[in-house]
Design a protein around this nucleic acid. Sequence first.
DNA 1: GGCCGCATGTTAGCGCTCCTCACATGAGCT
DNA 2: AGCTCATGTGAGGAGCGCTAACATGCGGCC
Lengths: 219, 219
Amino acid sequence: MSWKRARPETPRGYHHGNLKEELVKAALGLIGEKGPNGFTFAEAARMAGVSPAAPYRHFRDRDELLADVAARGFEAFEAALSRAWDQGRPDPETAFHRLGRAYLAFAHDEPAYYSAMFEAGVPLDASPGLRAAADRAFATLRQAAEALIARLPANRRPPALMMALHVWAMSHGIAALFGRADGGRRPLPMSAAELLEAGMLIYLQGLGIGPESAPPPAG
Amino acid sequence: MSWKRARPETPRGYHHGNLKEELVKAALGLIGEKGPNGFTFAEAARMAGVSPAAPYRHFRDRDELLADVAARGFEAFEAALSRAWDQGRPDPETAFHRLGRAYLAFAHDEPAYYSAMFEAGVPLDASPGLRAAADRAFATLRQAAEALIARLPANRRPPALMMALHVWAMSHGIAALFGRADGGRRPLPMSAAELLEAGMLIYLQGLGIGPESAPPPAG
DNA sequence: GGCCGCATGTTAGCGCTCCTCACATGAGCT
DNA sequence: AGCTCATGTGAGGAGCGCTAACATGCGGCC
């Protein structure tokens, strides 16, 4: 009995009624606080006010819950990136910079999701929906890369996939190494967002999509 | 008694004599096999042929061993990067490409070290030597950045620190997302090394250190 | 309306891990 | 030779993942 909530906020009977959702929420909270390893199945159950065995009715094991959290994270990620990209309006450059900021904002504001997605070691094919969600998120990046590349003369266009991978890698690298809420790594002379912005400007310049080399055709 | 080695390769008495080193080696092996979380204090002890309590004579706890592995990883990393950079010989561009390949080679060939360094969640100040070792490794990248920047006209030089951070971020991003031994993430149309090489060429081009924009002064 | 099936939750418990404490051993110094 | 102390052992508490057998009550069926 000791695992029961001291004072249940929502009185309930034998059946919880919404346990799966509440377990996911609890897991998110725990991952956010103590990292993906600090998260414990038993503690999530405690938070939801159920016995330590109850979660097994909803998830095969701890890894499956983690995979579920990661999948939801990719959904939210894709939504945030799509919203930022906004179909490239008003122009691809502006939208692209918004996209970069949105990437870092997500990593910064949703560390629990970001951990589950990229740092918890969840294999991408842990669940059917996971890889699909991850692919949709990446597709947004790729779409942005394509729109930017389209502004180049046809004979100087790099592969869009490659460019998307570069953007993703740099964003993830900055988020992973410097993007945490000052957590414990390295003090920087500039913010992660500024660092990414500068890096992307240089990269785009290298492609020839720079402020001085590619005036918008209908400017 | 069941924890004893079935057939001790090196017969020993009550005292092991070299336990600390052997625990670190065992940890490396386990991390390489099963990721930084799969690694277990008790199993490392078993591998070394000692009781599960013995490791506590050499490491305060599991995290301290992990931090020790990470610190050794940074030492090896620094050594590998320095060797590749080779003081910028024969010229900074050539040496820089070697450096990039060395970065990915390390991440690929020493996954256990790389995990402990970047993915195990070890705080950088877990031990005095850890941050120092990490700083030395980063200093190598920064040194390379400085040498490359020095080839630019004085009025177009970006901050070396920023450039080093960009290089690090892109390298780490590629290593973390695509660099694993095909482990389980995403199939690519090109190797991680090629991806990094292409990304760095574009980035350098953006800085004006490109094949067609910065012929060596003594060419 | 009453009954029953089955999803959901509980209890008990195995095996494992981390870590601690009291005790054993023997290497190296005096 | 004798002592000391670093190093290793044994036993055990607390917590976790997971399973099996049992309890409960919601929802569909007659």
